[in-house]
Design a protein around this nucleic acid. Structure first.
Lengths: 349, 349
DNA sequence: TGTTAGCACTCGGTAGAATCGAGTGCTAAC
DNA sequence: GTTAGCACTCGATTCTACCGAGTGCTAACA
C-alpha cells in the first residue's frame, strides 16, 4: 500500500541571492532539460554579479542539497529539495486568458452524468497542460440511499439496483440456486427498498432474520450490497493523456514504470489521497512513497462540494515540470469543477 | 474514423523450401529482434542445404515482398507480408498447461458484475502474454428493457435508471427548470416503466404527446434515454497492461503514438470491430488503417453468447510478436469467457 | 570581507580513422 | 540446381584527438 507522504521539510529560507540563483537554475532547467551553468545564471537573473560569484553560491547550494552536479565540469541541476523550495516560494500565477476561456467554455457546455463530466475534465486538464491528468471522483459511502430495487433477470438471477443521493447508481447481481417467482421478487424488492431507504453504506442496517424465501432473498441482496467497502469502492479515477508520460521521459524503462503505476487504480487513488492529506498540493520526486515515481512530480487540487471534499484533480509530470502553469491549471479546473457541481441546480440545462 | 481493414491478400503459396526459410526467418527474428542471416537459417531449419542456397532463396523472397533488408550486408527482416504468410500458415497451437490451469483457475473463481469480470479478464490476458490486452464488451442496443424507474434527486433533478435484459444498468439525469412534486415523479416513473418495458434502444417507442407536467417529464426522460446511440454507447473497452507498450517498442515516440490511440476508446472499439468483421483474427502492421499502429499487430477473438457476438478480446503487440502463443491465449480466453457467461446459470455461486 | 578576473583542470561529447566481422552477391565448379 | 570460394559492403565498435562548457582555486581588488 501507499506509504505516507512525507510532509515537505519546512525549508529554511535562503538569503535573497541564493534564492534568486536557485530560481534561475530551476527555471532554466525546466525549460531546457540541461544542466545550468554559472554564466547563464549570471546573465539571465537580474542580479548584477559575476559568474564566479554565482559559482561560489552554487557550491553552497549544492552543499545544502538544493542543487546537484551530474559530473564535474557540468552545470547544476535542481534536486528534489531544490524543486521543493522553488515550488514553496512560487508566486501564485493565473493561467493565460486563452486557457481561462477554454476552461470557461468547457464548463459552460459540458453535459451528462458525473462520470462523463469527470472523464472529459481529465482530458481537458491533460490537453491544457500536456501532462497526464488524474481526476478522482468521491466514493458514495456517505451518500444515502434513495431507492433500492430488485429486478429479475431470470428465475435464478436478480439484480439489485441502488440509487444514491449523490446521483450514483450501483448494481449487484444476486444469485439464487432456487428459482424465485416474480411475485416474490417484487415483494423482496419492496422490503429491500423499505429497509435501505435513507441509510448509507457507512451505517449498515440490520436485516430481520426470518426464514421464508422472500426474507432470504432480501438478506442475500442486502449482504451483497454491504459486501462493498464503503471507503474504497465507488471512488473512480479517470486518467487523461497517459500518452503524455512518453513525452515527459526519454527512457522507455521510466515510461513503463510510470504506466505500470497508473494501471493500478487503487494505488492512484491512495496516492492522490495521501498527497491531499499531507496538506501540500505538490509531491516531488521521492516525497510520495513510490520508488517508480521518483522522477515524477504530482500536483493535486481538491474538489469540494459544500466544503466537503468530493474528489480531486491531479497532474503527473516529470520533476522538471512547469509547476507554475500546472498548479494554476489544476487549481482553476478544481475550482470550476467544484462550482460546476454546486451550481448545477441554478444553471438552466 | 477507422478505415476498413484490408482483407489479407490471399498469399499465393510458396514452395516448401521458401516457406521453411521464411518461417525460420520470422521465428528467429521474433526471438532476437535482429536481422537474420542465411547461415543461421541454414543451420536452424532442418533443410540440409548450404547458406548460399538459402541466400538465393532469400533474394527471391525479398523480390516477392516477404523479406526486407535493413541495409546491404545485414540479414533479412520479415515484412508485414512475411508475417502475414507466417500467421496464415501457423499450425494451431494450444497454450501451455500451466497457463491453461491459470485460465481455468481464473474463471473458476472470478465473481462480480460483467464489467468487473471483463476488466479482470483484460488483466489476465495481459499477464499471460505480456502484451497489452483489449477486452470489448457488447453494447446493449439489442437488449430489452426490464425496468425503467425515475428517482428524484431533488425537485429539479430526476434520475432515470434503466435495467436491461443483459444485466446492464444505465442512468440518465433529467433536469426540469420547474419543481416537480414527488407524487408526479412517482406517476411519471410508472408511465415510463409501462412505456419502455420490453422495448429496446434499437426500436424506439412513441411517446403520447399530452401537455400536462407529468407527460412532459415522461417525454423528457424517454428522450434523454433515446439520445443515447444504440450502437456505439454501452460498448465498453477494458485495456489491460498498457505499460507493456513500453516493453514492446524501444522508441519513446512509437510508445507515445500507440498510447495515444489506446486513449481513444471509440477508436479502439472500431478497430477491434473492423478486424473482426474482416474475418481475420490478426491484423498486421498496415493492414488495419492506422498509421500510428504501423509497427503493431492486433490479434482478436470474438466472444459469443448463444452464437451472437457479444464482444471480443484482443492483444496488441509489435509486429514481431509471438503470434502462436498470443493467438492461443486470445482464443482460449475468448472461449472461456463465452462459456463463462453462458454457463453462469448452471454454476453454483 | 565579499567580489571578481584569471587560469588550470576536468570530463562529457563529437568527429575522424582504423578495424572488425557478419552477411551479402557473384562466379565458377560440381 | 547446388555449393564452395571470394571479394565486397557497411554498420558497429574502438581508439584517439580534441573541443569547449563549466568548474574550482587563487590572487588581486574594492
Amino acid at each position: 500500500m501507499a506509504r505516507r507522504v512525507a510532509k515537505p521539510p519546512a525549508s529554511a529560507d535562503l538569503d535573497a541571492r541564493k534564492a534568486t540563483i536557485l530560481e534561475a537554475v530551476v527555471t532554466e532547467h525546466i525549460d531546457t532539460a540541461q544542466p545550468v551553468g554559472s554564466s547563464s545564471v549570471a546573465s539571465s537573473a537580474d542580479l548584477s554579479v559575476s559568474p564566479a560569484t554565482v559559482r561560489s553560491e552554487m557550491v553552497a547550494l549544492e552543499r545544502e542539497g538544493y542543487l546537484a552536479q551530474p559530473h564535474t565540469s557540468a552545470g547544476r541541476v535542481p534536486t528534489d529539495k531544490g524543486y521543493r523550495y522553488f515550488v514553496d516560494h512560487l508566486s501564485d500565477a493565473t493561467v493565460g486568458s486563452a486557457q481561462q476561456r477554454q476552461v470557461a467554455e468547457f464548463f459552460a457546455h459540458v453535459r451528462g452524468e458525473v462520470e462523463d463530466v469527470l472523464e472529459q475534465t481529465s482530458t481537458l486538464l491533460s490537453e491544457m497542460t500536456n501532462y497526464t491528468s488524474l481526476v478522482v471522483g468521491a466514493g458514495h459511502g456517505h451518500a444515502t440511499i434513495l431507492s433500492a430495487q430488485l429486478v429479475s433477470l431470470d428465475a435464478n438471477h436478480q439484480l439489485l439496483v441502488t440509487v444514491f443521493s449523490d446521483g450514483a447508481v450501483t448494481k449487484h447481481s444476486v444469485f439464487t440456486p432456487y428459482a424465485v417467482m416474480p411475485s416474490d421478487v417484487a415483494e423482496a424488492s419492496r422490503q429491500i427498498n423499505a429497509l435501505l431507504l435513507g441509510t448509507s453504506l457507512e451505517h449498515r442496517v440490520q436485516v430481520p432474520s426470518r426464514t421464508d424465501q422472500v426474507a432470504s432473498l432480501v438478506r442475500d441482496a442486502v449482504a451483497t450490497l454491504h459486501a462493498e467497502s464503503p471507503t474504497v469502492e465507488g471512488e473512480q479515477v479517470f486518467i487523461g493523456g497517459s500518452s503524455r508520460v512518453a513525452e515527459a521521459f526519454n527512457g522507455v524503462e521510466t515510461v513503463r514504470k510510470v504506466l505500470a503505476i497508473l494501471e493500478q487504480e487503487l494505488l492512484v487513488v491512495s496516492l492522490v489521497q495521501d498527497v491531499l492529506e499531507s496538506g501540500s498540493s505538490v509531491a516531488i520526486g521521492s516525497e510520495h512513497g513510490f520508488e517508480s515515481l521518483a522522477s515524477c512530480a504530482l500536483i493535486v487540487a481538491p474538489v469540494t462540494i459544500d466544503g466537503q471534499r468530493a474528489g480531486a484533480v491531479g497532474l503527473l509530470g516529470p520533476t522538471r515540470m512547469k509547476y507554475r502553469e500546472a498548479l494554476a491549471a489544476a487549481q482553476l479546473v478544481s475550482e470550476q469543477l467544484s462550482r460546476h457541481f454546486i451550481g448545477e441546480d441554478e444553471r438552466v440545462q
